[in-house]
Computed example of a mutant assay.
Amino acid sequence: MKLFDLSGRKTLEAASPVPFAEWKDSQQGTAISLPQDVEVEELRPYLSSLTLIVLEFPVFRDGRAFTQARSLREYEGYKGEIRASGHLLPDQAIHLRRCGFDSVALSEDANVKDWEEQLGRYQFYYQNTAVSPV
Rank of each mutant, 00 (worst) to 15 (best):
M1D: 01
K2C: 00
K2G: 00
K2S: 00
K2R: 02
L3M: 01
S7W: 02
S7Y: 02
S7F: 02
G8S: 05
G8Q: 02
K10G: 04
K10A: 12
T11D: 15
L12Q: 07
L12K: 04
E13K: 06
A15F: 03
A15T: 03
P17I: 07
V18F: 06
F20L: 15
F20M: 12
A21L: 13
A21H: 13
E22T: 10
E22D: 14
W23S: 08
W23N: 09
D25K: 09
D25F: 07
Q27M: 10
Q28T: 10
T30H: 14
T30E: 15
T30W: 04
T30N: 14
I32Y: 11
L34I: 13
P35Q: 09
Q36M: 14
D37G: 06
D37K: 06
V38F: 03
E39L: 11
E39T: 08
E41Y: 08
E42I: 12
E42G: 10
P45Q: 10
P45V: 12
Y46C: 14
L47F: 01
L47H: 04
L47Y: 01
S48D: 14
L52I: 02
I53W: 00
I53K: 03
V54S: 06
V54T: 06
L55G: 00
L55K: 00
E56I: 06
E56Y: 07
P58V: 10
V59N: 14
F60Q: 10
R61I: 10
G63Q: 07
A65M: 09
A65D: 06
A65H: 07
F66C: 05
Q68M: 09
R70I: 03
R70S: 08
R70D: 03
S71E: 07
S71H: 03
L72S: 01
E76W: 00
Y78V: 01
Y78I: 01
Y78E: 00
K79N: 09
E81Q: 12
R83Y: 09
R83F: 10
A84E: 11
A84M: 11
S85Y: 11
S85L: 15
S85H: 13
S85I: 12
S85C: 14
G86P: 08
L88C: 11
L89E: 09
L89F: 05
P90D: 02
D91Y: 01
Q92C: 03
A93H: 00
I94Q: 07
R98C: 14
R98Q: 14
R98D: 15
C99R: 07
C99K: 06
G100H: 08
F101I: 14
F101R: 05
D102W: 02
S103H: 01
S103L: 07
S103T: 05
S103P: 03
L106K: 07
S107I: 07
S107G: 15
E108D: 15
D109K: 08
D109R: 06
A110G: 12
V112P: 05
D114W: 02
D114P: 04
E116L: 05
E116R: 03
E116M: 05
E117H: 11
E117N: 15
L119T: 11
L119S: 11
L119H: 06
G120D: 14
R121I: 13
Y122S: 14
Y125V: 12
Y125W: 13
Y126N: 12
Y126I: 08
Q127V: 08
T129F: 09
T129P: 04
S132W: 03
S132G: 08
P133Y: 04
P133R: 04
V134Q: 14
